[in-house]
Simulated assay, not measured.
Amino acid sequence: MSRYDVARVKTGIPGLDDLIEGGFPKGTTVLVTGPTGTGKTTFAVQFVYKGAELYDEPGVIVTLEERAQDLRREMLSFGWDLKKYEDEGKIAIIDGVSSAVGLPSEERFALEEGLNVEGFLRYIYRVVKTIDAKRLVVDSIPSIAIRLREEKNIREVLLKLNTILLEMGITSILTTEAEDPKRGKLSRYGVEEYVARGVILLDFIEKDVELKRYLLIRKMRETKHAMKKYPFEITEDGIVVYPSGEIY
């Protein structure tokens, strides 16, 4: 199959699909990495929300860094009513925070305390099947490792996660931290980028005494793409990428 025959999944992020031949390859796992504050969670949620809103594709969000109710409230600033699509069965949010901090969860979908890797993956699989999800977000990998107490075995955890995602044929975004990407360190553990089939870096660059955001596609299998830095903004409607923009 040539790359022109690859089924594509629209990202819902204006400007991005123009850079990756129309969208992510269907069924692929994409790592979105970058320092704190670059917009990784917004990027990931936009992928799921726009999938439900524009393309009638259900999606699951596994939130491991903030409570589901906080995520819903924050996304309303972009006009994204996650609850609306949850009620319609097009979005499911898995609360992975409450039990980790010893609080009961009021969410329909919530991870239990003490889950091992297999239990974690089985639960995600069940929720994906419940709403027949086509898209999945896990935010974030370091939080998986900490929550499951598996930091020493993170490569094995990620390989298992990636395998089950590929088996489900679901298109996924995993987020991670990159503390110093300019020195070549793209992820917290140094293995995440090798497991994923696509890697997108979000970062800052100083320009005119200001920090500007840029996006770099480091890897995207089955896809022809440029290795350039493209400016992007977080607007009142979400992330917008400027394919013809220049980064100096």
Rank of each mutant, 00 (worst) to 15 (best):
G96I: 06
R218S: 11
L64E: 06
A92H: 01
K50G: 03
G169V: 03
L111T: 01
A133T: 07
A7I: 10
G102M: 12
D132K: 14
I234K: 14
R147C: 02
N162M: 10
V128A: 09
L161T: 12
I124L: 02
G114Q: 12
T28I: 03
I239Q: 15
T163S: 15
A44V: 10
T29P: 03
I20K: 05
L215Y: 05
Y4H: 08
I170F: 00
R108G: 03
R149P: 00
A196M: 01
K50E: 15
E206G: 14
G15I: 02
G22V: 00
G102F: 12
K212W: 15
K10C: 06
E118W: 14
V9G: 07
Y189M: 06
I13R: 09
K160H: 04
T130M: 09
W80G: 11
T235F: 02
F47W: 13
G96F: 12
P142G: 00
A44N: 08
L115N: 09
A100F: 10
F24D: 05
P231L: 06
I170H: 10
E193T: 10
I239E: 13
Y230I: 01
L64T: 03
I164Y: 07
D180R: 12
S98A: 09
S187R: 08
G184M: 04
E156R: 14
L186K: 11
V157G: 05
K83H: 03
F24I: 08
G22P: 00
Y85Q: 11
L159P: 00
D18W: 07
V195R: 13
E21A: 06
Y49I: 10
R183H: 03
D70Q: 13
E112G: 15
L202M: 12
E179H: 10
L76K: 11
P104D: 03
I164V: 04
Y214M: 00
D5M: 15
V6H: 07
M168T: 02
S2W: 12
M168L: 14
K134G: 05
R73T: 13
S172F: 06
A100G: 02
I217P: 04
I200D: 08
F43G: 14
V209A: 07
E206C: 08
K229H: 13
S187W: 04
V240M: 14
L202S: 13
E179R: 15
A68F: 04
L76N: 06
S244W: 10
T175K: 12
P14A: 15
G102P: 02
A226W: 05
V45Q: 04
R218A: 06
E167W: 07
Y194E: 09
T29C: 09
V101M: 07
E107K: 04
G245M: 00
V191A: 13
E210C: 01
R108F: 11
F43W: 12
G114W: 08
